[in-house]
Amino acid sequence: MTVTAAHTEAPRDERRGRVARGRVLLYAFLISLLVVFALPLLWALSSSFKARSDIFSYPPQPLPLPATLENFRGLLDGQPFWSWFLTSTLVAGISTVVSVALCSLAGFAFAKYRFKGKRFLFNLMFSSLAVPFAVIVVPLFTMIAKAHLTTPYFALVVPWVAPAFGIFMMRQYTEQAVPDALLDAGRVDGCTEFALFRRIALPLLRPALGALGVWSFLASYNSLLWPLIVVSAPEDYTLPLGIQALFGATGRQYDLVLAAAVLAAVPSLLVFFLLRRQLLEGLTAGAVKS
């Protein structure tokens, strides 16, 4: 955990007391927020190890005593958890790879070329961010159902693999990270334009690719509304659909679904922690540049 070097400017004695008190308040504020943000998740983790009858014991018990793995065993033995898991991760993985490729290519074009209609095309692309999903959901579902393409590997992937947000982000990043001189040098060496992208731009864009990758993975892995509409066969369920169905089927009992929720959160958190720096920095790159 890096901390920026502390700038101590030797505050005067009378100010020192006030500053110290301010510090204490600041840390108290930040730590209580930390508790507020982390507590619900820790509570779920703890509850997933409680016996069904203990989940709602009163007064609430912070620790699962006695701890049991019964919920996890019941889930993995009795429910097609791994099938949901596989569908979710595969769909998210495929979407991520394809969308990172398409967005970086388009972002590169918008950042590094002058071409006729660029401004118009860019605005067209950007305006699609303002189209609410709710507007296209009914017709899109109708089209996909009519075409018998409701398999998750088509319906959950193809319509969403080129998000305008991703292209915008890649354009911002490419403008900063890829010097024109390098591209010109590549041209002199006889590289085709695609080779310029693949050999020169892509390696320089690696942090942004990571950011976009996590972003797409999470967006796909966590998505609920669209899968809820388009996927109907239980054997095609993704994790959110499976958990949702399980919750309904068990009469809104928490034992199995909490175990499923905890396991489902593992990939999201793993991806997030592995690529946290890229994600947080990449996400803000577009917004901060004036």
């Binding site: 779920a44 892995y221 959110p240 929720a261 959160a265």
Partner: peptide
Amino acid sequence: VISPIVVALV
């Protein structure tokens, strides 16, 4: 980062 279904359950 956490799936909304998980968050809603919690």
